[in-house]
Design a protein around this nucleic acid. Sequence first.
DNA 1: CTCCTCACG
DNA 2: GACGTACGTGAGGAGC
Length: 947
Amino acid sequence: MEPKQHLYLVDGSAYIFRAYHRLPPLTNPAGTPVGAVYGYTTMLWKLADDLNKADGPTHLAVILDASSVSFRNEIYDQYKANRPPPPEDLVPQFPLIRDATRAFSLPCIEEQGLEADDLIASYARAATERGWDVTIVSSDKDLMQLVGKCSKGGAGCIDMLDTMKNQRIDVAEVEEKFGVAPELVGDVLALMGDAVDNVPGIRGIGPKTATKLIQEHGTLEGALAAAPSMKPSKMRDSLIEFADMARLSRVLVQLKEDCPLPMPLDDMKLDAIPPEPLTHFLSEHGFTSLLKRLGDGRGSPDRPTQLNPAKPVTAGAKAAPAGGRAPLPELPAIDRSAYVCVQDEAALAAWIDRAFAARMVAIDTETSALDAMRADLAGVSLALGPNDACYIPLGHGGSDMFSDRPVQVDKARALALLRPLLESDAVLKIGQNIKYDINVLARHGVNVAPIDDTMIISFDMDAGRSEDGIGGGHGMDELAMRHLAHTTLTFKDICGTGKKAIPFGEVPLDRATQYAAEDADVTWRLHRVLKPRLADEGATRVYERVDRPLIPVVAQMERHGIMVDRERLAGLSSTFADQIGALEAEIHALAGSPFTIGSPKQLGDVLFDKLGYKGGKKGKTGQYSTDQSVLEGLAAEGAPIANKVLEYRQLSKLRSTYTEALQAAINPATGRVHTSYSLVGAQTGRLSSTDPNLQNIPIRTEIGRQIRDCFVAAPGNVLLAADYSQIELRLAAHMADVPALKDAFAQGEDIHARTAQEMFGEVNRDTRGRAKTINFAILYGISRWGLGGRLGVPADEAQAMIDRYFERFPGIQRYIHETLDQVREQGYSETLFGRKTWFPRIKSGQQAERQGSERAAINAPIQGTAADIIKRAMARMMPALDAAGLGHVRMLLQVHDELVFELPEGDVAAASDVIRAVMEGAAAPAVAMTVPLGVEIGFGQSWGAAH
DNA sequence: CTCCTCACG
DNA sequence: GACGTACGTGAGGAGC
């Protein structure tokens, strides 16, 4: 009997996009980008190599999309209409995919007017009808409809293979993903739609709801038919109103299984691959490691890690400079079985000795919780090279005396052994978000230094750099995927999630070792891939001079924390609660019946339907807007309820977000509040603050300001607040070279008054206020409609003001043009200190998206330069204070243009001089400012009093 | 989980 | 011709 035939259908077009995003940006010797081609080549290699293996291919073909238009566009002209153009450095790789396929002597099939999915469906059907098995090499969700389909009689069956995750996708995986059997996937897709293909679906219905509906009603038609009898909801209305959209979507996602087959199945027979064309192709593109393997005669390549050192991939990328660094040798694939669990002192001592010899070690700490100031140390992992990693459990085992504690080194003893290594100037400690590890270890008396941080290195090169919303982050899992093509174990995999989550210290040691040592191994590998790129891409200065020195500084600020007056917060909280209660009663009386005031939906219905006020505008979700501006409008028209609701909102916000949450945030061990700053939180280079956010404590209203008064100095001390005055406008004046503005700052004038004088010829409250609005509008990237809305004037009048502004301050318009030109050409903006922010959507075909990027791009150099300046000041602050004998002054908080310190009252005068000097001089010597930087200082018992 | 709203620079 | 309108953040509550 003939052996079972097994056809592999490779979804080539989909693969290349995924490969592009997940692999380093490699270039071939001619300077053509080939990262995605390399990924594609290794994938084909591996598949072809599986010939003769159980479940391996006997037949294989690559299917490609021939054109962007298909028969679906005749049904729905918007199909795939809002796809952004592919990245510029991917475009030249498309033809190379065909070259690569030919080099393997494999069939490559494409047909005008048909999508790859349809050809795949048709071939899959033809093959199963002959009793063959079929594996579709793809992870496309549309194709999941085919999984499990068998010929009549069940001789041949279809499954899928995701080569990147090395995962088979069978009926069970499809059911897990969609919650329904593969044959109902099309119905789910029709409801949820697909933003990428622009399949409309039904607005407001996402994957969760779509699955639920199909589960409950069996089919799409079942769900649509049942809609009128569902309980009233937005979803029910959408189902009824947009039923036709769903039916259209159903047709769009239906795969065409009866296409004519351009090549007979038998011609896809897989044979030994002639080496000649392959050798030629591999050498042409510099795939030396694969060439070598071809020379060896057999064996599929390991996962690619690094081919050529990555070059900057920019819109106008030039070929790599001649004589660039030699390629790094490839690293072996990650092998978790190689990791070691260190459970005795002798083994630990041996690792420490080897780390000293290596002079470089990646470290990672595992803890019982996410808050570095509260978490208990569960263990430490180290990596010295690829797959050369260990985990040292220190706090594993039951929390009670009855459970078994695994064998492990005593925590204090282990830390005493590790300390010389972690503090040694001769050994570089590499971490991924090492600020966390620094803080955990600092609480155990270990001062980790010197350091490198792969998360910060990534941010300093790649901030904002993402395509289609994929892969813009700097977390370890994402970086491992992007730069190492490796899927890491996730914390969720190990500890579970939600209520079922267990603390890391209770994870069995073998699992804990795999996870923890992998994190250190991945960190080590990321460092090797990313660090050399810093210099190539001109990011060394911002990393070495700004961000790296800041890490221990910010870590120290977090550990200091700030004292809050708990009783005072509690007092405010109950006062607010009383006032909220009274307001609630008044509002219900005015409305005529009780309702949930905090629900914008209910409030909108009360205001505009029940009470009949005018001016209700419904947004895209069909709900009335009830935000501040709307309520203020109603109040101005004499709606008494509007002001009450505004007051209610303000008090509720203050109580829930501040007075209540801040009490809960007090650390029981220190009695202070310790925020966590993210150095990669804002694309512009600003810090962000979480858990709790101490960068949005109220100040703009009198009632909110009372909360600032609850932030107090320790007994015998005061809080000192130092603010940069108008730093972004000063930077705009400097960077855009605007003589009138520079002059005003040099003279110490009121800048908004000066703007009013230039714009309107006279200064009064009204013109100064307008001038202030216009100044900010400029910083944020202006539109006539936006400015008109803010000033309450028609757009053409706003346009006249913009014209007038550009006329009086001619440098501004030039700055905007030059900035946008640069971003369009290079793909990124730059601060005065060389920090890059990428804008991948700057050329988007969608106007709103593009214009949004343009506004952000105008703002980023200014906001980012201000961030660089205060970061430089922070890095220099403690050494300067130390030198002045003020080493006991503690820097506690940063709020973008403000630093808050805690110090004895008697030191205020001396410290103010140092702080002012450091802050005002923070741009020098790297940048010579043509505008002075002004700093305002205040102090008092509380943060409120310091302003 | 997503939306709306609102606190800050 | 329609779109949606100032930049950057984080958090809480409602409602599905």
